[in-house]
């Protein structure tokens, strides 16, 4: 005996009820539960769908789907970081390295001037405002996509929402910039350090807010063979 379409939909709802938010993991678990239920029906054809479903779920242990959710999110985080680093590496190769070096020079020369204190704050605020603007824009875009397809993919959420985490971290350090810029103006090593940090921050934010979201469709198709099914 095979499961009907509405029973499959019921299994999707069941995984959502047990905290599996993302469609990719839901699909895998639904297939697993469905297979187990169909196997049980071979021996006990009279067993009700609900009882068979609960029995299949019990085999996942007391933590239910939690361990699978946790591991999936760790694995996807790893994948996201792999995409991120491969984008970052490009900025240290020809021709992008020219842009990276120019950016570094702009920061270095600005911080070498007597306006270091003011300029560091100005740059900081500009990057922060742009990041917040992009973060809000991406979040809105993500909500729109979700409403349209009614599905949420883990990597999609990371691409559109994880970027926001970087901004928060970035913003939380604003006070430190004020302190450091006052104490270290004129110190060659501090200028070099500041120029490197600002160059990297600009690159990190540009990659996570602009480049990766622009490639979202390709990355999602590469990660999820079922994305376009």
């Amino acid at each position: 005996m095979k499961l009907t379409e509405s029973q499959i939909q019921d299994l999707y709802a069941f995984t959502r009820k047990h905290f599996v938010e993302h469609y990719d993991l839901q699909t895998e678990l639904v297939d697993h539960l469905a297979n187990d239920i169909e196997t049980m029906w071979q021996d006990k054809p009279k067993l009700s769908f609900e009882d068979a479903r609960d029995k299949a779920f019990k085999k996942f242990g007391i933590f239910g789907f939690m361990e699978a959710i946790e591991q999936k999110s760790k694995a996807m985080n790893k994948r996201y970081m792999r995409y991120f680093w491969s984008e970052l590496k490009l900025w240290f190769r020809v021709p992008q390295i020219l842009a990276t070096l120019s950016l570094f020079c702009v920061f270095y020369l600005s911080f070498s001037s007597s306006y270091m204190g003011v300029l560091s704050v100005v740059f900081y605020v500009v990057i922060a405002i742009w990041s917040i603007y992009k973060s809000i824009q991406l979040n809105r875009h993500f909500r729109g996509r979700k409403e349209k397809s009614n599905k949420k993919w883990l990597l999609e959420e990371m691409i559109y929402k994880q970027a926001g985490g970087t901004t928060l971290l970035f913003m939380s350090q604003i006070y430190t910039v004020f302190i450091i810029s006052d104490n270290f103006s004129g110190n060659a090593l501090a200028i070099l350090f500041f120029a490197i940090i600002f160059t990297l921050l600009t690159l990190f934010n540009y990659i996570s807010f602009e480049l990766i979201p622009n490639k979202a469709e390709d990355l999602l198709n590469e990660t999820y063979p079922e994305f376009s099914l």
Partner: peptide
């Protein structure tokens, strides 16, 4: 089941 999927996802990552 509780151990299988975490292991599969880890190996995939």
């Amino acid at each position: 089941e509780g151990a299988l999927y975490p292991a599969l996802h880890k190996l995939e990552a």
